[in-house]
């Protein structure tokens, strides 16, 4: 079984993003970029499935500018076998990404697509669900456990009330939540090996997919700033302030 893992290049999770002065977006020039943390978890899960013998090949896919190659290399260093870059300068929104991925699924015929549950830049949390819809496949979203069996996947999902278990028909789309696993660090030899693994470059046009954004960003602003209040000297003062000043208890 082949596994397809879409990996997105995003502003590193440790960077405190700044809104651009002209309010068109956030500053990304000279900002550290990394693989979306949820996608690292997705790659790790795929690699573990391969190590267990449940998968035979892992294909990492990234959609965006040429530098997404670096993100793909990270996935290759973690254990993916080859990469596909769908190169475009257009801001690809989840529906467009899902359509591109569908086109790749039709070419590659994977048994499983594992995505991150959410990209930490747009915070959309849509792509996996959309891809599953376009393919007519089962979806296991926000999963913290997956057991791949014969023609079926047993998954545990993190839901608002606790945990939920589903059995999905395969092929299926899974989206990784934080507690699915702890991604490995790529070792130096693996980083070297990854440099020799192939990356194919495609375009949305070649795949026949229209990626025109459906949603226009009119402006991006900073949220209202919270001012830090003062420190209190002790617990008694805290309770007094909450009661008589803030009047919340």
């Amino acid at each position: 079984m082949k596994i397809l893992v879409p990996v997105k290049r995003v502003v590193d999770f440790n960077v405190k993003v700044r809104v651009k002065a002209d309010h068109t977006g956030v500053e990304t020039a000279n900002v550290k970029m990394s693989m979306n943390p949820f996608d690292e978890i997705a790659v790790e899960e795929a690699v573990r499935l391969k190590e267990q013998g449940a998968a035979s090949e892992i294909v990492a896919v990234s959609i965006g500018v040429a530098q997404c190659q670096e993100t793909i290399r990270t996935a290759l260093a973690m254990g993916a076998d080859r990469g596909i870059l769908i190169e475009t300068r257009v801001e690809t929104q989840p529906l467009a990404v899902a359509k591109l991925l569908k086109a790749l699924v039709e070419r590659e015929s994977p048994g499983l697509v594992i995505l991150g549950k959410q990209a930490i830049d747009d915070d959309c949390n849509q792509t996996g669900q959309m891809l599953a819809a376009l393919l007519g496949w089962a979806q296991g979203t926000f999963i913290s456990k997956a057991k791949i069996g014969d023609g079926k996947a047993e998954v545990v999902r993190e839901v608002d009330g606790g945990l939920e278990s589903l059995v999905l028909k395969m092929p299926a789309v899974l989206t990784a939540d934080l507690r699915l696993n702890e991604p490995r660090y790529a070792s130096l030899p693996n980083i070297m090996k990854a440099k020799k693994k192939p990356i194919e470059t495609l375009t949305p046009e070649a795949l026949g997919v229209d990626v025109t954004p459906r949603i226009a960003t009119l402006k991006v602003e900073e949220p209202p700033k919270r001012k830090a209040g003062g420190k209190v000297a002790g617990v008694a003062e805290l309770v007094d302030k909450l009661k008589n000043e803030a009047k919340v208890i």
């Binding site: 989840p94 529906l95 930490i120 830049d121 747009d122 915070d123 959309c124 009119l218 900073e222 949220p223």
Partner: peptide
């Protein structure tokens, strides 16, 4: 398309939504 996680309605086609863990607010149509 879907507009995720709106925090305000500006007009029937325009909405505010937090992005980048709420470090920015996008107004989208």
């Amino acid at each position: 398309a879907q507009v995720s996680d709106i925090s305000a309605v500006v007009s029937p086609d325009t909405f505010v939504r937090p992005i980048y863990a709420g470090n920015a607010l996008a107004t989208v149509r």
